[in-house]
Design a protein around this nucleic acid. Structure first.
Length: 319
DNA sequence: AGCACA
């Protein structure tokens, strides 16, 4: 099945498909028709920055951000193909760990030849989209000419590296005494399609259990100098919020922050130009939960993409 | 990348 996500549409209607060399300029502002869907889907939040000659200039506030068809908006996992077969899980983790909203990733040896694919899971859909548009088409190994192909996965990974593992390896390679390996090939043989990301999907688990050897290895956090966290700033009960649109108001932020328990107060600075905000919570557990939920989300006022949230470098002065 | 308030 062909993904309806539009950056993979033929060059005819994709501005990103041309000039697709090292870092793809993230299909800026592209408005594309998704096959089978009447309305256009807006691929990038910069729509109102680059004024395409639109028939209706009477719409000043940019169309709030719909990236993909509704059922895809629950997807927080990316499917990564185009990897060299000697890729290491650590490399996948390092590819994604700095991306805002990154949660965890896994490398999967599919068992089809030496094919390797990966899944990267984010805390929200927008973060996944943002990572996808900045990494899709990137040359992963120039020596070998390996170019990453990234799309939304068909389903979310259920693996969550809650505190422990930074990444996971799934090895479906089989050393079967049976000569018939076709028994559990579940599709047409297309090699770069997103397969189910469910690592242990109950529906096919039983069927496969008898034949397949699947090992899940959780490599401990920090085993090679990496961290489960997507930032190196130590946890703090105050959050630093950046990448806000110039028109972002305290009220707008407060409204979304107050959905998280433990939220105390908000302070904004740098109004006009590039505002930043500090949000104080009762404890680091609350601030961490809020950060994970807020990372990469788009506000009405957002014009540079989703908000960027980090732990503040110092706790807000208690008043 | 941009981290203040005392």
């Amino acid at each position: 099945m062909k993904p309806s996500y539009a950056s993979h549409a033929p060059p005819s209607n994709s501005s990103a498909a041309v000039a697709m060399h090292p870092p793809p300029p993230a299909a800026a502002g592209a408005v594309v028709e998704a096959p089978g869907f009447p309305q256009p889907y807006y691929l990038h939040p910069h729509s109102h920055h680059h004024h395409h000659q639109q028939p209706h200039p009477a719409h000043p506030p940019a169309p709030p951000v719909v990236y993909s068809k509704p059922e895809q908006q629950r997807i927080k996992t990316l499917f990564v193909s185009g990897l060299p077969d000697d890729v290491k899980p650590r490399e996948i983790h390092n590819l994604f760990r700095r991306r805002p909203g990154f949660d965890s990733c896994q490398l999967e040896y599919t068992g089809r030849g030496d094919q390797v694919v990966a899944f990267a899971t984010f805390f929200n859909h927008q973060s996944a989209i943002a990572a996808m548009s900045s990494l899709d088409g990137v040359v992963f190994d120039p020596e070998i000419g390996a170019t990453l192909h990234i799309e939304l996965a068909r389903s979310n990974s259920r693996k969550r590296s809650r505190g422990v593992g930074a990444y996971t390896v799934i090895d479906k390679r089989v050393k079967v005494t049976n000569d018939d390996q076709e028994l559990f090939s579940d599709d047409d043989g297309g090699s770069d399609e997103p397969s189910g990301t469910d690592n242990d999907n109950p529906s096919n688990k039983d069927a496969l259990a008898a034949v397949k050897s699947e090992g899940t290895i959780v490599i401990p956090d920090g085993a090679d100098g990496t961290f489960n966290d997507h930032t190196d700033i130590p946890p703090c009960s105050t959050l630093f919020i950046a990448n806000l649109g110039p028109t972002c108001t305290e009220e707008e932020l407060k409204q979304v922050l107050s959905k998280y328990s433990g939220f105390h107060m908000l302070k904004m600075r740098g109004r006009g130009g590039m505002p930043v905000a500090f949000a104080d919570f009762t404890d680091t557990e609350s601030s961490t939960a809020a950060m994970n939920g807020l990372q990469g989300i788009l506000l009405e006022s957002s014009d540079r993409g989703g908000v960027h949230v980090e732990y503040a470098r110092s706790k807000m002065r208690k008043s």
